[in-house]
C-alpha cells in the first residue's frame, strides 16, 4: 500500500500542535499584527513595574498637566503624575482580572452548555430559560449591584465578570454540542454504556473545544471593555491604582487642553482589544472555524 507524505500525519504532541497553530496564525498579516500586539501587551504587563521611569502615585502640584517632553514622554495628568508610567502599568490589573475572568467564563459556560446539549429535554429547557433571563438583564446594572453589595476587590470582580460573560458561552457550547450529539459516535458510546461524564470528556469536548476556545477569546476582549467601563464609572479598581478606565474617566474633562492624558490610556485599551480580537479571529481561521459570517451578539 502506498502512503504518500501528503496524507501521512502522525499523532502530534500538544506542544507541536500549538506551535503549528501559532505559525498558521502568524502567516496571515492580520494574525501577525494581532499576535504581536497581544504579546507586546503581555510582556509589558510583566516587565512594566521594572521599567517604569517614575513612581505612578507620586503627586507633584508643580508638574500639573505638562505636555509630553523628554522627561515625561506622555506628559503629566492633573495631579502631576507621569502618564507614561501610569499607561504602561494601567493594563496590568485589567489584563489579569479579565484573563482569569475569561477562564472562569469558559469553564462554567462551556461545561454547562455541553451538559445541556447532551441531556436535552426538561433540564435543558429550564437551564436555557434561566440563561435567557440573565441575558436580558443589562449586565452593567447587575454588575453595579454586585459590586456595590460586595465591594470592588479582585476576588469579587473575577467571578462576577466570569459569570456575566459565561452566559453567552453557554449558548455557543450548547449549539456546538448539538452539532456533534447526533453523530453516530455518540450513539455508539451510549450504546456501549459509557457514563455521561465519559461521553462529555472523551467524545464531546475534543470536538467542541475549538469552537468554545475561540468564543472564549472573543469574550476576553469584550470583558476587557466591560471591566474598563466599570473602572470608568468608578466601580472597578480604586485610585490611585493605575488603570486605563480610571485614567480615561479622570482625564476626560481635560481633553480640550491636555489631550495627552486621555489619549495614552485610550490607545492602550483599544490596541489591546484589537490585538485580542485579531488574534481570536486568526485562531479561529487557523483551526478552520471561520467566524466571519457570524455576527457578534
Amino acid at each position: 500500500m502506498k502512503v504518500d507524505n501528503i496524507y501521512k500525519e502522525e499523532k502530534k504532541s500538544a506542544f507541536v500542535k500549538l506551535s503549528e497553530i501559532i505559525i498558521t496564525m502568524a502567516s496571515r498579516p492580520s494574525g501577525l499584527i494581532g499576535l504581536s500586539i497581544l504579546v507586546f501587551h503581555i510582556i509589558l504587563a510583566f516587565i512594566s513595574p521594572y521599567i517604569a521611569p517614575h513612581d505612578f502615585k507620586a503627586i507633584d502640584p508643580t508638574l500639573m498637566l505638562q505636555a509630553p517632553s523628554a522627561e515625561y514622554w506622555f506628559g503629566t495628568d492633573d495631579l502631576g503624575r507621569d502618564v507614561f508610567t501610569r499607561t504602561i502599568l494601567g493594563g496590568r490589573t485589567a489584563l489579569t482580572i479579565t484573563f482569569f475572568g475569561s477562564l472562569i467564563a469558559l469553564l462554567w459556560g462551556g461545561l454547562l452548555g455541553i451538559f445541556c446539549g447532551l441531556v436535552g429535554g426538561k433540564i435543558d429547557d429550564v437551564v436555557m430559560r434561566i440563561v435567557d433571563a440573565f441575558l436580558s438583564i443589562p449586565w452593567i446594572l447587575a454588575m453595579l449591584l454586585i459590586v456595590s453589595l460586595l465591594g470592588t476587590s479582585t476576588e469579587v470582580l473575577i467571578p462576577a465578570l466570569g459569570f456575566f460573560y459565561g452566559k453567552g458561552i453557554v449558548r455557543v457550547a450548547r449549539a456546538a454540542t448539538h452539532d456533534v450529539i447526533a453523530k453516530d459516535f455518540i450513539v455508539s458510546a451510549r450504546a456501549r454504556g459509557h457514563s455521561n461524564f465519559s461521553i462529555i470528556w472523551n467524545e464531546i469536548i475534543p470536538n467542541v473545544r475549538d469552537a468554545i476556545l475561540v468564543e472564549g477569546a472573543m469574550r476576553w476582549s469584550w470583558m476587557l471593555l466591560g471591566f474598563s467601563s466599570l473602572s470608568f464609572l468608578g466601580f472597578g479598581v480604586s485610585p490611585p491604582t493605575p488603570d486605563w478606565g480610571l485614567m480615561i474617566s479622570n482625564a476626560r474633562g481635560l481633553m480640550s487642553f491636555a489631550y495627552w492624558a486621555v489619549i495614552a490610556p485610550i490607545v492602550g485599551l483599544s490596541s489591546l482589544i484589537i490585538g485580542i480580537n485579531l488574534t481570536a479571529d486568526a485562531f479561529a481561521k487557523a483551526l478552520g472555524i471561520d467566524r466571519s459570517t457570524k455576527a457578534p451578539v
Binding site: 453523530k183 453516530d184 459516535f185 450513539v187 455508539s188 450504546a191 456501549r192 454504556g193 475534543p206 470536538n207
Partner: peptide, 22 residues
C-alpha cells in the same frame, strides 16, 4: 454492563461513527 457488552453496533457511515479527534 454485561447486557450492553453482548450487543454491539456497527453503523452505516464510518465518518460519523468514529470520533474524528480520536
Amino acid at each position: 454492563p454485561n447486557d450492553l457488552r453482548i450487543i454491539q453496533l456497527i453503523f452505516q457511515n464510518p465518518d460519523e461513527s468514529l470520533n474524528p479527534n480520536h
